[in-house]
Amino acid sequence: MTLELLLVYLAGTFTWPASPPPDLHAVIRSEFVYMASTRTTTSEWWASDGKSTIRQGDRLSITREDLGVVWRASLKEGTYSERTIAPAGQAAAPPDAAGANVDMRTAGYDWEPSYEWSVKASGQSSTIAGRACREFVATGDADYAEARVSFWACDPLPGVVRNPNDAVVASLASRSVRRMILETLTKQGGAWVLAADEQQEPAIAPTMVMRVRVETLEAGAAPAGTFDLPPSFKKLGR
């Protein structure tokens, strides 16, 4: 019996006491193709209710929504930095397009493509990390950039509260791409994205390609300490 079936069985069998939903674990492989070279990275990601952690080589990032902090740690150096995060659901103020209240000291630097998207289901289907998936293809046009994205919307693992979507789309280049994928997934009844390719013609740089794919996906209990900093780690800064 697979772990997934076991969880479904257990979920159906026991109604009391209410056991917490299982944690979610994914191994995510991403590629960045730029200037005739490819950089490949593999990340290990865990999520629980209000917590997530992602490890990439000797770098570790732990998000504790329950504590309102993000820790970024170097496993090699045994150090970490901490920043606070806004309460869930609090959106950033929209930019002031007319320039009335712009900070002139930083104006003109932060152009971010806001694509106009055309999104279509390609009709292709596949199985990724054991889940049934449908492909979507999107083309985006912005003032100074263009993008072509394909991504796979997949059936969620049953009984799991968290989804891996934020962790998967984090490897993609622009906020507009990430937002478009997440909005499409919502329209698809809360599907999970388990693979995506983004080809971007950015404003200034040569063509970039980002590819991301979930290699492993499973529900289960995270090892003890997964969402905590090792106690010996030293905090950086004042």
């Binding site: 007319a98 320039g99 712009v102 002139m104 013609e201």
Partner: peptide, 24 residues
């Protein structure tokens, strides 16, 4: 800085159809 900031506001406040010439 006065002239530069005025130029920015004059351009940023223009609303209508955007034309872009792309030499990339």
């Amino acid at each position: 800085t006065g002239a530069r900031d005025a130029a920015y506001r004059a351009i940023a406040s223009r609303e209508g159809r955007v034309y872009i010439v792309d030499l990339k």
